[in-house]
Amino acid sequence: MGSSISLLGMECRGCAQELPAEIRPRISARDFSVYYGSIAAVKRVAFDMPDGLITAIIGPSGCGKSTFLRSINRMNDLIPRCSVSGSLTFDGHEIYGPDIDVIALRQRIGMVFQKPNPFPKSIFDNVAYGPRLQGVRDRSKLAEIVERSLARAALWDEVKDRLHDNALGLSGGQQQRLCIARSLAVEPDVLLMDEPTSALDPRATAKIEELMLELRGTYTIVIVTHNMQQAARVSDLTAFLYEGELIEFDRTGTLFSRPKCKKTEDYITGRFG
């Protein structure tokens, strides 16, 4: 580990780790499509995101990868005229089923966004937001959760002395880790990350990636990225989406070293995208 990373013929951390023998899917898509009005942004994709592993979704911009990610915890509900078809399940439950509790779903499936978006509140209040929503009022218990979450997000040491400062005063990388901590405070099963490092500088990016690897195993992580090196570095499995269609899905090492499709090869070698 810690070896240099090259794209082809790679020897990267993500794929160097052995995958567990038994893979349990946490989220699975079957024939799943998302439409904006009559335009399909995601077309009949089908793959599984396994428990405790990191699944990366890559593809050129506009390929529908963010749309797909946002449909996992139904954030697309906010967009008018957005509809879905096919099946997308979480722990066997149809996410778009009629009896699903969207709020509970989103508590189980946390999300980290492209741009760090802490609330304009104190660091403490940011992390405590989720637990408070669920009725945790006890000050000491909240403090405990906040500390645990910040520690898990590798931010505790940096902010423990200024928990009640405004979160907007943190640096970009710290803000993003705060957002991760905020998501972790809800104790989700799944963490969706929508290009979490695209607005950050390389050092902050490295920290976040490190963090993701630490969270691996405890959480099921799905990350959307347009940065192929990142996918190669951190993920166990990689899905390549192009124009809304799933082109290839495989173990990260396999996909990057021996892509089955011509399109995948063209993309990862930088011929387009």
């Binding site: 954030m75 509970a104 609330f119 304009p120 937001y129 929503l133 905020r182």
Partner: peptide, 23 residues
């Protein structure tokens, strides 16, 4: 982004408005 963050943390619409949007 504030609204999305609150929703992704499992806040309902009303909760989001009261705890995030209005402040």
């Amino acid at each position: 982004a504030y609204k999305e963050a609150a929703l992704s943390l499992g806040a309902g619409k009303g909760r989001t408005i009261i705890t995030v949007v209005l402040p």
